[in-house]
Structure formats: structure tokens, C-alpha cells
Design a protein around this nucleic acid. Structure first.
Lengths: 221, 221
DNA sequence: CCATCCTCCCGTACGTCGTTCGGGTGACCG
DNA sequence: CGGTCACCCGAACGACGTACGGGAGGATGG
């Protein structure tokens, strides 16, 4: 008792390219960029791909997989600099790119939390960092410690900066007024102020230079 | 047509202390510690407090508020050290406590992402940090930059360490095998290894010392 | 040429979630 | 004793992640 052939669609839809993991992740990144992490939904993602929501589960195990893949994907954009004579400059270049990637995809900060970073793009960048530090003369646990120190600094910076930037656009006045109202409770904070929008970049590089200086002096020569 | 009086409960339940924001946040922290961030639910939280789930909304605007309050609450445990003669030691003591708080509440890392830190406990600790750095001779944007550098380093370290620790307990073998299998793709990573469980503490303090060294040399005197 | 399998797709449905709404109920005040 | 207020809650709504069973179309192999 099946329906008449004439009423059925002959070709379901072959105008769109076939669904792949890459296409899913690409759309996920676009959706996250546009709407933020709270609006990423399997249904919405599927709609953008002109497919059914449950179809996604053929290519991906869970929604969390999509997030993890999207997170690793954005690190594919950070370029590995040419290895130059000054290893410090190489580290700064790599880490500036890392930070820029996180800043231009603010949802990445929220996705990062408490999750091991094992994606190929992240691993490749970490390996590059290891390589630069090794060429600089570090080895073993000392090298691992230095690499983690640098990476942690960068990730923490990007994380906080994303939070501060969102704060600036959405509730800057409220937060500022909150601070003035409680300036007796936070005297030093009120006295010296916060970083303003255009100071973040310089502060980031400056802090990183200080960290590298300290690491170099203690661990090299 | 209301029900007979005799069938109704006379006293709803006055054995429990009255519901307050503090009690809600306290139970939320306990629930988060036990079950993790994915299992925190308004209904589950209410059940633990012997109340209806919708009652919570009288004391709290959204679930996100609960998370933000819980996050700030755990920073109430980090103690402000006595201001001693060595400002570096003070910073290290404060930041070690900060890190310890995050490590003993692993969900905090996931909650932190991309959110401005404006709670009173966090602000008080930040103010204390500002105070220590001011006493050390820093001021203005230089001080703010240094404070952010230190705080970002600590937060990033705790974040990564939580991820690595979870990785260690849940998928250590798989991750290790994954690395050996691709050791040609990540040669430096495979050559120098990762930090092992008991090296994290020392690496954290060492990196922080390096950072403080660099900051002191560049910005002081 | 038909039967069979594999790949990819999807409608339906279940259980759970955050949150809104409208109505309680007791304490206190006049 | 009527009314206002602080606090509480059951029911319901819409959205979510995802399990399941099935179905189409090409490939395979007899």
C-alpha cells in the first residue's frame, strides 16, 4: 500500500554537496561565530545544512564532538612562523596568532574549560612550540614546564580578554558604576584602574616577554 | 469543591531552615563538586533543598546566576596572606591559593569561560593583588598590566591542569597511545614528554617566579 | 537479473531541561 | 477582620539531545 510513485519526490535533493564531517564543523564554526555558544543546536545546525537534525549523528557521535571539532578547527588558522634566529620572536609570533584566533572566535573561551586539548591542530601548534624551545636549548621536563607556562599564560589571557570585552560592550557602564560605588571596598582597584581597550595587545606582549625573559635566565646557560 | 481539610498537610515543612540565596549557592557548590557541571539542574538542586524547582526563581533570576554565584563563592576560600617584606612571596601565596581553589572545584574551569569576573570575592582578591603590586612600586597601567599577566597565568594554568587531570583519570592510556602512534607527526612532543602528575605544582610556582622576575626587572627601578 | 548488503538519510518520539504563569498560604499590619 | 506582602509551588510550554526503526539508492556477488 505504498504511495503512488508520482507523488513521491524522485530526487531527494542532490543540489547540495554531500554531508561530511568537514561541512558540519565548518557550519558549526560559522553558527557559533554568528550567534554564540548558547545558540548552537543540532537542529539549527542541521537546518543550515539543509538536512535533518538526526542525520548529523551519522557523522558525529554527540554534540560535544561538534564543539570539540570546532574548537580544534579554529586553531588551524594560526600560522606557524618561519623558525628565525631569535627563538623568543618565534614564540611571540606563534602565541600572538593563538590569541588572535581565540579573540576572533569568542565562544572558544567557553568551550575550552576543563577539556583536554588533543585535536590535531592544537597538537601541531604545541609541537611547534616544543620545537622552538628545544632549539633554544631546553629539554625534558624543563622544556615541558616552559611550554606549559607559555601556553597557559596565553590561554588565560585570551580567556580573560574575551570576558572583559563582552563586559565592555554589554555592561561597561554598569560595571564602572559598580566599581565607583564600592571604591572604598576595593581601594587599590579604584586607584589604578583597569586595562582599556587598546592596552590589551601591548600588555599581552609585554607580559609574554617578561615570562620568556625569566624562563630564559633561569633555564638557559 | 476544595478538598477536605483533614486530607491537607497542615504544616508544609518547617523542619528545614528557610530558603536563602546562601543556602542555594551552598548546595549548588556541593552538587557541582559531587556530580559535575553537567548534572547541575534546577530540579535536582531544588530536590536537595526540599523545595520545588520553581521556588528557586524567587531567590535567583536564572540558572546562570546560580553558576556565577557558585563560582564566586569558591573564591571566598582563598585566604589573603599577611603582607610580608617580600612582595613576590605574597603574590605566590595568593595565587597558589587561587589555583588550589580551582583545582579542588574542577567545574570552575568550565564556568569561567568568557565571563567577566565581578563577584565580591574575586574582586577582593584582585584588589589585594593590586595592593601588593602597588606596595612593590608599580602604579597605573603598568600595575594593571602586571596584575592581569599574573592572574591570567594562574587562571590558564588551573584551566589546563583541570583538563589534563581529567584526561589522566579517564583516558590516560588512550591519549598516551594516541601520542605514540603519531610520534612521527609530533616529534618534539614525543621526545620531551608531558608534565607528570607531581610535576605540576613545581612547574606552576617556577613559571610564576619567572614571570614575576621579568615583571620586576622591566618595571621596577 | 535478482537478492543482499552497505552507506547515508530522516520522521518520530522520549525524557529532560530552563523558565513562565497563575495561584496559593501564612505572617503581619491597619 | 480585610488587605498587603514575602514566599512558595504545580502545571505547562517550548526547546533541547539523542535513540530507534526504517527507507532509498548504489554496489556487490551469485
Amino acid at each position: 500500500m505504498s504511495e503512488s510513485v508520482w507523488l513521491r519526490q524522485q530526487r531527494p535533493r542532490r543540489e547540495a554537496p554531500p554531508l561530511t564531517r568537514e561541512r558540519i564543523v565548518g557550519e558549526a564554526v560559522a553558527l557559533l561565530d554568528e550567534k554564540g555558544v548558547g545558540r548552537l543546536t543540532m537542529r539549527r545546525l542541521a537546518e543550515r545544512l539543509n538536512t535533518g537534525s538526526t542525520t548529523l549523528y551519522w557523522h558525529v557521535k554527540t554534540k560535544d564532538d561538534v564543539l570539540e571539532l570546532a574548537l580544534d578547527a579554529i586553531f588551524g588558522d594560526v600560522s606557524l612562523p618561519e623558525a628565525g634566529p631569535d627563538w623568543r620572536a618565534d614564540v611571540i609570533a606563534l602565541m600572538s596568532g593563538w590569541r588572535a584566533a581565540m579573540l576572533s572566535h569568542p565562544w572558544s573561551a567557553a568551550v575550552l574549560g576543563g577539556r583536554p586539548l588533543l585535536g590535531p591542530n592544537v597538537m601541531a601548534r604545541t609541537d611547534f612550540l616544543y620545537g622552538v624551545l628545544a632549539a633554544a636549548g631546553l629539554a625534558g621536563p624543563r622544556l615541558a614546564g616552559a611550554a606549559y607556562a607559555v601556553a597557559n599564560y596565553v590561554i588565560g589571557s585570551a580567556l580573560m580578554e574575551v570576558g572583559a570585552r563582552r563586559d565592555e560592550t554589554v555592561a561597561h557602564d554598569a560595571a564602572a558604576e559598580h566599581l565607583v560605588r564600592n571604591r572604598d571596598r576595593y581601594p587599590h582597584l579604584a586607584a589604578h584602574g583597569h586595562l582599556s581597550g587598546d592596552e590589551w595587545d601591548a600588555a599581552f606582549v609585554h607580559g609574554l616577554e617578561c615570562l620568556l625573559d625569566g624562563l630564559a635566565r633561569v633555564s638557559l646557560r
